[in-house]
């Protein structure tokens, strides 16, 4: 299902470090953006002029009262151009499109104690979580590894807000975050959350598992690819119509756009109503539903058109 979209305006853009730019975003129509939960992210659509890039960014502060959102964007050399655009070309007053926030990295509200671990720009969801846990009056500690004090976005703000609960590790000063040292002697019912470079996430999780922590108490931020994908051609055999399925629309939406009716109910891959017979697929079916069994997926005879796509050139449907 396509997420709700908001058009926002960049109300402030500030370099928090030489490599991190923080953006404050307000609704273009002047209404308040809805409040969000800590750990939530939004998918930002960046129109560079040549193409539209979609990147997921964590919201850095839980905005209990709603209003504005903040994201912090690290300049990455390997980026597809999204972060470069935000650093070089985006100005205060420019507009962007955001998806309604979703949260794949929520705080476990039943935890007795929270251990928050962040590396580099991974601080963005973790800072929001620290703020929320702090506000709820729950027990937590925050471990934050940065390359240099100069580089650590938010270091000073976090230290001022959380005092002794913040443990800072600065690579430049040879300080290493040793998770093995943090893991022992935590009370039963402690939850650990980690966000940072992929290698750091893997190492922290591996250490925690080795120390006997149950998976249910370990949480890492992983962005799932935003809905959508590469465009492909669609031909409807019975109605003899063709259409291109765009990068950010579903097959169902493309079909509706040209005025062909197709059965559907949930638009989220669960109800089974939109099941459609595949006449031919020049490419691989990219099944994203919860309805078809593994065997049915392998057979490739049916596709749930509200969420699934084709990776390839052309899909011919019996519609």
């Amino acid at each position: 299902m396509r997420a709700l979209q908001y058009t926002v305006r960049v109300s402030e853009a500030e370099a928090v470090t030489p490599r991190v730019r923080r953006l404050r975003l307000v609704a273009a129509d002047g209404t308040a953006l809805p409040p969000v939960s800590a750990g939530a992210h939004t998918v930002v659509s960046i129109d560079t002029g040549e193409r539209v890039i979609r990147n997921a960014y964590s919201l850095t502060a839980p905005s209990l009262s709603g209003g504005a959102y903040e994201i912090a964007v690290l300049r990455t050399p390997e980026s597809r151009g999204g972060s470069a655009f935000i650093h070089e070309r985006l100005r205060e007053g420019d507009s962007l499109t955001l998806s309604a926030p979703a949260n794949f990295f929520p705080v476990n509200r039943r935890a007795r104690h929270h251990v928050l671990v962040a590396g580099g720009i991974g601080i963005t969801p973790i800072a929001a979580m620290a703020e929320e846990i702090f506000r709820l009056g729950a027990s937590f500690e925050l471990h934050y590894a940065v390359r240099s004090a100069h580089d650590g976005a938010f270091c000073r703000e976090l230290a001022a807000r959380f005092g002794g609960r913040l443990h800072l590790y600065c690579g430049e000063r040879q300080e290493r975050l040793q998770v093995q040292a943090v893991l022992p002697n935590q009370p039963l019912g402690t939850h650990l959350y980690v966000c940072g470079p992929e290698r750091m996430i893997e190492a922290v999780l591996a250490d925690a598992r080795a120390a006997g922590w149950p998976n249910a108490n370990l949480h890492a931020e992983r962005f799932v690819a935003p809905a959508g994908g590469e465009p492909f051609s669609l031909f409807l055999r019975r109605s003899q119509r063709s259409v291109t399925v765009g990068a950010d629309e579903s097959v169902l939406e493309a079909i509706e756009r040209i005025g062909v009716e197709a059965p559907h109910l949930c638009r989220g891959g669960a109800c089974g109503e939109c099941i459609t017979a595949v006449s031919h697929a020049d490419g691989t079916l990219d099944h994203r539903d919860h309805f078809l069994s593994a065997a049915e997926r392998d057979a490739g005879e049916h596709v749930m058109i509200c969420v699934s796509r084709l990776k390839g050139r052309e899909l011919v449907l019996d519609l």
Binding site: M1, A3, L4, P34, A100, P101, A102, C266, G268, G269, A270, C271, G272, H290, F291
Partner: peptide, 17 residues
Amino acid sequence: FERALKFLLNLQLGRPI
């Protein structure tokens, strides 16, 4: 129930069902 649960875990803000 398995399908309904998976669907609900992804329920989006502003998209009630």
